[in-house]
Structure formats: C-alpha cells, structure tokens
C-alpha cells in the first residue's frame, strides 16, 4: 500500500469496543472504499450504500478477523463483495468470475501506436482529458475493472488484490494486463484524433 497510517490502527482496541479507534479506521479507509463503489456501480447513491454496508459488515465481523491478510485487504474484500452483490442485483447478467473473452486473445493486441505519452499533464488531465479517462475506466468489463481499481488506482499489491478478490495471483496478473491494455487502447484512440499530425518515422 502506498500510504501507511501515521500510527497503526489497533485491532484489539476496536474489538474491545473502542469507538474512537473504529472512527479512525473509518476515516482511514472510507475514501478509497467510496471511490471503489463509485467506479463499480457508477452512481453516488449506490457508492454510499457500498460504503455504509462495508463498515457495518466490518463492525459485525471484526471479531472473526484472523489477521491472515492486512486489515486493509480485509476491508477491501468486504467492500468488493458488497459492490458485487449490489451489481448483481442491478445487472444480473454480469458474470464476475468468468474471464471476458478468455479464449480470444485478439483483444489483447495493441492496434494503435500513437505516442501521446509526452503530452503535458494539464492537457491529459483537463476536464476533457479526465472525462476520456473516466469513461475508458467505466467501459472496462466489471471483472477487469475491479482488479484494475484495487491494483493500479488504490495501490494494492498483486498478492493483496488476489486476497481481496479471492483470485489466484496469476488470474490477477492476466486481468490486470488486459485492463491496462484496454485502457491504453481507448486513450490512444482518443488522443490519436487530437494529436497534431506529426511525421511518423
């Protein structure tokens, strides 16, 4: 994880009923969990449900937390399950276990080779650029999006992502590569229309 709480949250204190310590836990992880809900469900109401249910659930089950994964990973696991449950309720056709287009590796192959990577950040993250990025993330199939969000946005390791989603590390790696390449392709399509024509060498 890219950020360590300034002083470690005490699991023992939370289990013993220390409300202030639980509040610290909530403040530490509510932003990433809300973001995850927002990106998985696509609207603030559902994201808020995911957020509230995650911490209600965590509070109920924290006695059973075995410490085999970190507290953060355990929370992400609950949050991912809440998000998936809500997603299934809303879109029963979503199949998160199944690899989308597993057998045809064609979609893995990059098709656009425009190098937009040197564009300045204020252009890439302008309102328009940000929207293109957000739309591209939103278009990822759910099974890839969840892996991508945990690993690349929230900074979990491959191992932590696998633990949080109950996937093998190999499976996480495969999905991650697919997600990254799919996003890259989308953004390349977007920027290829915007880059000034340059002499291709």
């Amino acid at each position: 994880m890219n950020r360590q709480p300034s002083n470690e949250i005490s699991l023992e204190a939370i289990i013993a009923g220390d409300r202030a310590e639980f509040a610290r836990l909530v403040d530490e992880y509510s932003s990433p969990i809300y973001r995850l809900g927002l990106r998985m469900l696509g609207n603030p109401q559902d994201a808020e449900d995911v957020l509230q249910n995650t911490f209600l659930n965590a509070l109920t089950h924290i006695q059973n937390f075995e410490g085999r994964s970190s507290l953060a990973t355990w929370l992400y696991r609950i949050a991912a399950n809440e998000a998936l449950m809500l997603l299934r309720k809303k879109k029963p056709e979503v199949n998160i276990e199944e690899m989308e287009g597993e057998e045809d590796a064609e979609d893995l192959h990059p098709a656009r080779f425009v190098d937009w990577s040197a564009l300045p950040e204020d252009e890439l993250l302008s309102d328009e650029g940000k929207k293109a990025l957000d739309d591209a993330i939103q278009q990822l199939p759910e099974s890839l999006r969840l892996v991508f969000l945990l690993r690349d946005v929230e900074g979990l390791s491959i191992k932590e992502t696998a633990e949080a989603l109950n996937l093998t590390e190999t499976n996480v790696k495969t999905r991650l590569l697919r997600a990254r390449l799919a996003l890259r392709e989308q953004l390349s399509a977007y920027y290829s229309e915007r880059l000034p024509a340059r002499s291709e060498k």
Binding site: V114, S117, L125, L133, D152, L181, R184, L187
Partner: peptide, 11 residues
C-alpha cells in the same frame, strides 16, 4: 510509454 502513462494518470 502509453501504458505507463495511463497508469500514472489514474494515480
């Protein structure tokens, strides 16, 4: 380059 940049941007 573009894959790296994509990952930078989302972070």
């Amino acid at each position: 380059n573009t894959t790296k940049r994509t990952i930078d941007l989302v972070q």
